[in-house]
């Protein structure tokens, strides 16, 4: 048990430090990388909670795909840091409100005994051969299938909308069509002619 506690505090310290770093570091690339670090440590915490499917999926989806694209964009943009800081006081009340909501939520978790915390007993620790991937799959595709499909359709709509909004057909673009290129045969491109000098040799 003591080893798990050490691991928990190790991951939590890194998580809190890197999460603070995300909002305080000046360079946006560094802050995106710190966000990656906090995702990874968060996955570590979830592993301690025996949620290995969620932990690995967090790394796979957020670290492996979403944050790569984030970094991609952040590195390409020429971000002016002074202009980013201009709006600080304008947005301060909004940010403070969100911070307040989070503080209330966290305190509700910490003071759980006033909110019927005892009625939710701690789940039994499962054996080593218990696969929560299978369990999660069963729940998603049977009980929560409509909610799951709805979320999937929502994501698909968002993706198509993003493509439709940004896709512009340029008239003067000079790209080639690979399907046409692949179909090209020798006869379309070259014509073999017999010249006078070649005839002489024969």
């Amino acid at each position: 048990m003591i080893f798990q506690d050490i691991l928990f505090y190790f991951f939590s310290t890194i998580l809190i430090a890197s999460a603070l770093g995300v909002i305080t570091v000046r360079n946006p690339v560094n802050s995106a990388l710190l966000l990656v670090l906090s995702f990874v440590t968060c996955a570590g915490l979830w592993l301690l909670l025996e949620a290995e499917f969620l932990a690995i999926t967090l790394v796979l989806v957020y670290v492996g795909a979403v944050m790569v694209l984030f970094l991609f964009v952040v590195m390409m943009l020429d971000i002016n840091l002074d202009r980013l800081r201009e709006g600080f006081w304008k947005w301060f009340p909004f940010g403070a409100m969100i911070a307040l909501v989070i503080v209330v939520e966290i305190s509700m978790v910490l003071m759980g005994k006033y909110f019927g915390y005892e009625e939710m007993p701690l789940p039994e620790p499962k054996g080593a051969d218990y696969s929560n991937t299978k369990e999660l799959g069963r729940l998603i595709y049977t009980e929560y299938v409509y909610a799951f499909e709805l979320a999937a359709v929502l994501l698909l709509v968002a993706m198509i909308a993003a493509i439709a909004l940004t896709l512009r057909h340029r008239e003067d673009k000079k790209s080639t069509n690979p399907f046409k290129q692949v179909k090209v045969r020798k006869e379309d491109r070259i014509r073999i002619v017999t010249t006078m000098s070649a005839e002489k040799k024969e």
């Binding site: 290995e52 492996g64 795909a65 696969s131 991937t133």
Partner: peptide
Amino acid sequence: INAGLLYILAMTSM
């Protein structure tokens, strides 16, 4: 581990 394939995918994507 049970989720070996997922682990591989997560690691290679990093």
